[in-house]
């Protein structure tokens, strides 16, 4: 057992606080508080002092977050901007990145493997899938790093920490909007190709902003959950990309996964089928495709909108509460 040389060795020869004793090299003994914790608590209560570093009640917390909306907006847009400022093409990459991402999958799954698996317009299918899924994927990654990345901000300023994951998703939304315009353009252009049926702009396209809004809510909820998990157990950050890859193939981002369910045995099919169809990411992709294209296998379905709204609200509310419950723990390390 090793002992502290400063306090352990010479505890006998100094009793008076402030007395340097025989050895000026030693600081005085630590002060033993004369007032007990309960007395101090009473003093605090008597003068209406509030406890610091504890989680505020949920209602006050929500109010605080809402009042910081300007902060969220500025932080979000600034983060989005700073991401693409260190190269020649600058903000153009916000659009070029998802396009190149989609092109990769179109080349491999659309042309090289050339199996349409019951989809008429493969390009539109893949483009919508990859653009929308990218938003989910980046929200999860961004949420995971939102606390650690801003630890300096957390350690020097006071604000509800929920601002950070929200701002992270807002920053992604800021880059998503221009890239969605490009997505719609690609979908329309793919219809001009003689290989695919023409894509028409219908009144349904007006629903796209609603879809984005629901997806935004959903992603913010996801970001809250992973933000707390990773802030407390940083190791989880390594697992996220694998989980996301599983979700990507399991939600039919680049080919309809439900197409393969029919190959399974009946018993498995009854369990796996509905899960694959009604899990949130698949629901959002279904809606994206049904609003923008006229695929015969993906007809517009009001039920799917109900599912999407349900998922978005549930994930957001649960995520917010999960995050709030860890509020006092962020920034400890």
């Amino acid at each position: 057992m090793t002992t502290d040389t400063t306090t352990g060795a010479a505890s006998g020869d100094r009793g008076t606080p402030g007395g340097a004793g025989n050895d000026p090299l030693r600081p005085p003994e630590p002060i033993v508080p004369t007032t007990s914790s309960s007395e101090l608590r009473a003093v605090a209560a008597q003068h209406g002092l509030q406890q610091m570093g504890v989680r505020p009640p949920l209602r006050a917390y929500i109010k605080d977050v809402v009042s910081r909306w300007a902060f969220i907006r500025v932080l979000g847009t600034a983060t989005a901007y700073s991401k693409n400022q260190n190269n020649y093409l600058g903000q153009l990459w916000a659009v070029l990145n998802p396009v190149l991402n989609a092109v990769t999958y179109i080349l491999i799954f659309g042309f090289l493997l050339n199996t349409n698996r019951g989809v008429e317009n493969v390009i539109a299918f893949i483009v919508i899938g990859t653009f929308l899924f990218r938003f989910v994927e980046q929200s999860v990654h961004g949420g995971a790093r939102s606390i650690a990345q801003k630890s300096n901000l957390i350690r020097s300023l006071h604000f509800p920490r929920a601002v950070l994951p929200i701002a992270q998703v807002v920053s992604l939304l800021a880059t998503l909007v221009p890239s969605l315009v490009v997505m719609c353009a690609i979908v329309l252009l793919s219809g001009l190709s003689p290989r695919y049926p023409t894509v028409y702009v219908t009144w349904q396209w007006l629903l796209l902003p609603c879809l984005v809004a629901l997806l935004w809510l959903f992603n913010t909820g996801l970001a809250f959950m992973v933000a707390r998990a990773v802030a407390i157990t940083p190791d989880l950050d390594n697992i996220i990309s694998f989980v996301l890859r599983l979700v990507m193939y399991g939600s039919g981002v680049i080919f309809p996964v439900t197409h393969y369910v029919s190959n399974l045995s009946d018993g498995v099919q009854a369990v796996v089928g509905p899960i694959l169809e009604y899990q949130p990411v698949a629901v959002f992709l279904y809606l994206g495709r049904s609003t923008l294209t006229q695929e015969p296998n993906i007809p517009p379905d009001p039920m799917m909108w109900a599912w999407a709204a349900g998922w978005a609200v549930v994930v957001f509310v649960v995520g917010f509460i999960v995050f709030w419950r860890g509020e006092e723990r962020y920034g400890r390390d």
């Binding site: 570093g53 600034a78 020097s156």
Partner: peptide, 30 residues
């Protein structure tokens, strides 16, 4: 200031204390 949560014990304050300093690291890339 309430920026680092206590491991044990508590801090009670009137109003919101603020930390003034040069360590308030912001976002260097901006």
């Amino acid at each position: 200031t309430g920026l680092i949560p206590p491991h044990q014990g508590a801090v009670y304050a009137a109003g919101e204390p603020a930390l003034l300093g040069v360590n308030a690291a912001l976002m260097p890339q901006l």
